[in-house]
Design a protein around this nucleic acid. Structure first.
Length: 709
DNA sequence: TTAGGGTTAG
């Protein structure tokens, strides 16, 4: 008898374990073929791969499963669909024997087709399937609505057997109407529903809120709580908080906050509720409360951090916002696109290019620079900080540009007076088939205004006026009045202001008055000012413009009359101020300011520049002093305008040859404009001035605005 | 043992 192998018998029949584990042989059962055990093990490996989104590994294991159950096929084909691979999903579905295909697998392949955007296949499968249930119909209806095909959804909803219509079907219709802006249809359907659950109520509350009816959303929430008999969920609370935040309804929000305690959703554990509470308090300008909620959150995710960061930004506490951004990085919370958007907005709020560049570098490191959200924010940041070149560079790198990307770069170029670039960008936008909107038109018209392109403005205004999808607003008419007025067509501008289909507001008359000041048209100016004072009796800008116009015509008695009226009405002229931000610190200057620690050096340098300016042929233009005082006095006033102090401080504090960027709250005066052109030449620097109207880039004795602003 | 419905920051 041959000797049996040593492992074959003994271990199987031994019930006690050997004492020496080194001598232990594996249980024989593990070495035998056991179809059931093997299949179970493969199934669980397959499901693990799917759970971890390892599609290829999942398929490899799936292929080893002998006669996989239809449920596994269904899971596999849905995984393909979520990976946008419809051909593989359909191929797999076709391999399932017909007699084993159940309604779930049919519904799943329909869902897969919809997920992959193939509606023709979805409808074909829907027609072919042997039996349909409520889920089959609801899946189709939901798919149509998610693509905006409301009519198709309505057709299916009508054709669906009444017995199959369950609450989910009605909910899909209500939500779909809301998502497609058909809020009245949603309300009608909601009122017709045979029964409503928590999702029905949440859908209508969220839908009303999304469609600008936040007050009504809060009324529905109140009804739900008081008389629906349906318990609210954390999602309902989140939607209610969103509505309260949008309209800053503090009382409603507080009541919802109380409910979060009652239903146990708060205690800092539900991150959706927590983030919504932070946003709500921030919207009500209660940042202390927002911060208190934030501190109570047990596990803070990136959304919660971003809600706080955005809240500080909304409340113009930009330093705090950027501190939050830094903190979240220190706590190893990885910022996402929204975090970057808010942080960059705060850099714009602080006009702090240096911090913006640091955040840009972090975005590049994380590979987010070319994403549409971060890219758009970077375009705005660079444009508003005066760096159009960088803005264009970022814009070109954005992978999938949307209308906001185009608007950002168009408005940015317009602010810098780059009229031709703006029009070229618009042409490119049209060629790429991107639908322009109200903001595009405002950007284009302001570009034409700043570049004196009247004919282009007329064409653009006409083109947008003919667009069915867009309604011209009072802002657009204000822009057109501005272009006409600045280009010297003051009477036509007045005629447009009087005949426009929407009632002209004070802004329209103010831009007309500004044009009158520019072109010394006293008759139109007095009529425009009369309109403004009827609407806004204390409009300081109108008083100043009218007073300056009288002064430029040397009608000093009228100037005195305006000043008396201003004094009588308690109207205070906004003082001109300029500032420069260096190493994160903002330095402010007023006219003839002597409060800065470096005052002595600033005035010394200003005197030196004054001599150099005269050598270059500079003669102060006294019409910009606009006061009936002696010539020496006016010269002195002009020399110490705030922008000159800020520029000189910049020259003293930065490396030779580097660009200086300063900001001014009012428009730069004509005399300073002349002086700064020469200053840039004398010191051989580029000087960028952002005034209340636009950006001016001064270099080699000329300005980018071509003396037209 | 697989399929459908509502939510947060920008």
């Amino acid at each position: 008898m041959p000797k049996k192998p040593h492992f074959s018998i003994q271990p199987i029949f031994t019930t006690t374990q050997p004492t020496n584990s080194k001598c232990r042989t594996p249980p024989f059962t593990t070495l035998l073929q056991n179809p059931k055990a093997s299949s179970t093990s493969l199934n669980s490996t397959f499901l693990n791969h799917l759970k971890n989104q390892r599609l290829d590994s999942a398929r490899a294991v799936f292929n080893k499963i002998p006669s996989p159950h239809v449920s596994l096929c269904t899971r596999m084909l849905l995984a393909y669909a979520h990976n946008h691979n419809l051909p593989q999903a359909i191929n797999l579905f076709n391999q399932i024997p017909s007699n084993t295909k159940d309604i779930i697998s049919w519904n799943s392949i329909i869902r897969a087709s919809i997920l992959c955007g193939d509606f023709i296949t979805a409808v074909k499968l829907f027609d072919e399937m042997p039996h349909r249930n409520s889920i089959s119909w609801t899946t189709m209806i939901h798919g149509f609505l998610s693509l905006g095909r409301v009519v198709d959804a309505e057709t299916f909803f009508r054709a669906m057997p009444s017995a199959d219509k369950d609450v989910a079907t009605w909910n899909v219709m209500v939500n779909g109407y809301c998502n497609n802006g058909r809020v009245n249809d949603a309300l009608r359907l909601f009122s017709q529903m045979p029964c409503r659950d928590v999702i029905s109520w949440t859908s209508i509350i969220a839908g009303l809120d999304r469609n600008g009816k936040s007050s009504q959303a809060l009324v529905f929430l109140k009804d739900m709580v008081s008389c629906s008999g349906v318990d609210i969920s954390s999602t309902t609370l989140v939607c209610g908080l969103s509505a309260a935040a949008k309209i800053s309804d503090f009382n409603a929000g507080i009541q919802i906050h109380c409910r979060t305690f009652k239903f146990g959703y708060c205690c800092g554990f539900d991150q959706f509720v927590s983030a919504s509470l932070v946003t709500f308090y921030a919207s009500c300008k209660r940042m202390d409360d927002a911060f208190k909620v934030f501190c109570e959150i047990v596990c803070k995710n990136v959304v919660v951090w971003t809600a706080l960061l955005t809240g500080y930004g909304l409340n113009e506490k930009h330093d705090d916002a950027l501190e939050v951004f830094g903190d979240m990085m220190r706590f190893c919370v990885v910022p996402n696109e929204s975090s970057f958007t808010s942080a960059l907005n705060s850099c714009v709020g602080l006009e702090d290019l240096e911090k913006g560049r640091v955040i840009h570098a972090v975005a590049v490191k994380m590979g987010l620079e070319n994403g549409v959200y971060v890219g758009n924010s970077l375009v705005v940041m660079y444009s508003k900080c005066g760096y159009t070149g960088d803005a264009l560079c970022v814009f070109n790198g954005i992978g999938e540009k949307n209308v906001v990307s185009w608007n950002s770069v168009i408005v940015g170029c317009a602010q810098h007076g780059c009229g031709l670039w703006t029009l070229a960008l618009f042409k490119q936008m049209l060629m790429e088939g991107v639908e322009s909107d109200e903001i595009t038109l405002t950007g284009l018209l302001s570009a034409c205004s700043r570049s004196g392109m009247l004919q282009k403005a007329r064409c653009i205004f006409g083109y947008f006026g003919r667009k069915r999808s867009m309604k011209l607003t009072v802002e657009h008419y204000a822009c057109m009045v501005d272009v006409l007025g600045r280009c010297g067509e003051v009477e036509e501008a007045e005629a447009l202001a009087m005949s426009m289909p929407v009632e002209a507001n004070s802004m329209v008359w103010l831009v007309l008055l500004s044009a009158c000041r520019m072109h010394s048209n006293l008759g139109v100016a007095e009529r425009a000012a009369k309109r403004i004072f009827e609407m806004e009796p204390n409009c300081s800008a109108a008083y100043v413009l009218l007073s300056n116009l009288y002064a430029s015509l040397r009608r000093w008695s009228e100037v005195a009359r305006i000043r008396r009226k201003m004094k009588h009405n308690g109207v205070v002229k906004q003082p001109g101020s300029s500032w420069i931000t260096l190493k994160g610190l903002r330095h402010d200057f007023l006219c003839a300011d002597r409060s800065h620690p470096l005052t002595e050096k600033i005035y010394e340098k200003l005197e030196w520049l004054g001599v150099k300016l005269k050598e270059q042929g500079y003669v102060p233009d006294q019409q910009f002093a606009l006061h009936d005082v002696e010539i020496e006095q006016t010269e002195e006033m002009l020399s110490y305008h705030s922008e000159r102090l800020a520029i000189v401080f910049g020259l003293l504090s930065t490396v030779e040859g580097s660009t200086i960027t300063i900001m001014k709250n009012l428009r730069v005066c004509g005399d300073c404009h002349n002086a700064i052109k020469l200053m840039a030449k004398i010191v051989d620097r580029e000087i960028v001035v952002r005034d209340s109207s636009r950006f001016h880039h001064f270099k080699n004795g000329i300005c980018s605005c071509g003396d037209y602003w």
